[in-house]
């Protein structure tokens, strides 16, 4: 019994990171209606930039994370403006393959800069290293990251709900033609969406590298993880992605705990099953992707 509770606790804690990495993916899928195969690049590059700024230059990790997240936002806008925008009207396959190409190039450049191996960052944290709940030990840092992820989700929800910018993004998500009819600059909203996607995913990367070693080649796993989270939670909505993240964290943790060898098969079979039964996600907005 305590085993199950442990899986749920650790799965949820880890799930917050998955959710944070998937917010942008969910928004882009909802607003632009595309799957960005280069999504994991934001996470991985955000992690490696944070590592460089902190471990090599010696900048405070908070500042470093923000710089990393910001530069991923710029990268997101760049990818949208230079690449995706050109093929946006074509068959979705073209965007998949194009963004895959972007991911390959970005990964190669990252390997030239950081090498092909993994890096990790140890954060010195004041206070006890472990918290005990009953007879379960939980690393304090995992809880800190959990809280940061929740705050980041809250900030994103506030931006989406309370600012004119968020209203425009939501309008495009709900109905792109109507939004453009009432004077929303759709092209600009697309750029902003990709920027937001980059910032939040970059922040996820900055947190990830304090938890486990991260290398350039891992980008594809992050893209798939984000897609799984969105498929579970439903696209376009932040709360859906959050719940999806928690659920995916638990499924992921349980699969690797009980059947480490077959875990990928179980996870991907779950993905296929969910896609067949409820492509709009368990908590989706009821709309399916345009393309």
């Amino acid at each position: 019994m305590s085993e199950i509770i442990e899986i749920i606790i650790f799965g949820t804690l880890r799930g917050a990171i998955f959710a944070l990495a998937a917010f942008g993916f969910s928004l882009v899928l909802g607003v632009l209606g595309i799957v960005n195969f280069a999504h994991g690049v934001f996470v991985v590059l955000g992690a490696l930039i944070t590592w460089s700024l902190t471990a090599q230059i010696g900048i405070n990790i908070v500042v470093a994370s923000l710089i990393a997240a910001g530069s991923m936002g710029v990268l997101g806008v760049f990818i949208q403006k230079v690449f995706i925008d050109r093929v946006f009207k074509l068959h979705p396959l073209m965007i998949l393959v194009q963004t895959f190409g972007v991911a390959v190039v970005a990964t190669q450049l990252a390997e030239l800069a950081w090498g092909g191996g993994e890096r990790s960052l140890k954060v010195e944290f004041p206070g006890p290293a472990l918290l005990t709940i009953g007879d379960i030990y939980i690393p304090t840092w995992d809880i800190v990251i959990f809280v940061i992820s929740l705050i980041a989700a809250g900030v994103l929800v506030m931006i989406m709900q309370m600012t004119p910018l968020g209203r425009a993004v939501r309008a495009c998500r709900d109905n792109i033609d109507s939004a453009s009819l009432v004077g929303v600059d759709v092209g600009r909203v697309f750029l902003i969406t990709m920027g937001i996607c980059g910032i939040w995913s970059g922040l996820a990367g900055a947190l990830v590298i304090t938890l486990k070693p991260t290398g350039p080649y891992m980008h594809f796993f992050w893209t798939l993880d984000a897609f799984l989270v969105v498929v579970i939670g439903g696209m376009g909505s932040i709360s859906g992605a959050l719940i999806g993240g928690f659920l995916y964290g638990i499924i992921n943790f349980a699969a690797y705990y009980y059947l480490p060898n077959q875990a990928p098969a179980i996870i991907f079979a779950t993905l296929i099953a969910l896609l067949m039964i409820r492509p709009q996600g368990l908590f989706g907005l009821g709309t399916t992707v345009r393309k």
Partner: peptide, 24 residues
């Protein structure tokens, strides 16, 4: 059964199938 999906969803379903089968 995967043909009920289109575009991105079909692509990602088949990709997931590839990884699942590869693991097996």
């Amino acid at each position: 059964p995967l043909f009920r999906q289109r575009g991105f969803y079909f692509a990602l379903s088949t990709l997931a199938a590839q990884f699942a089968i590869e693991t097996v």
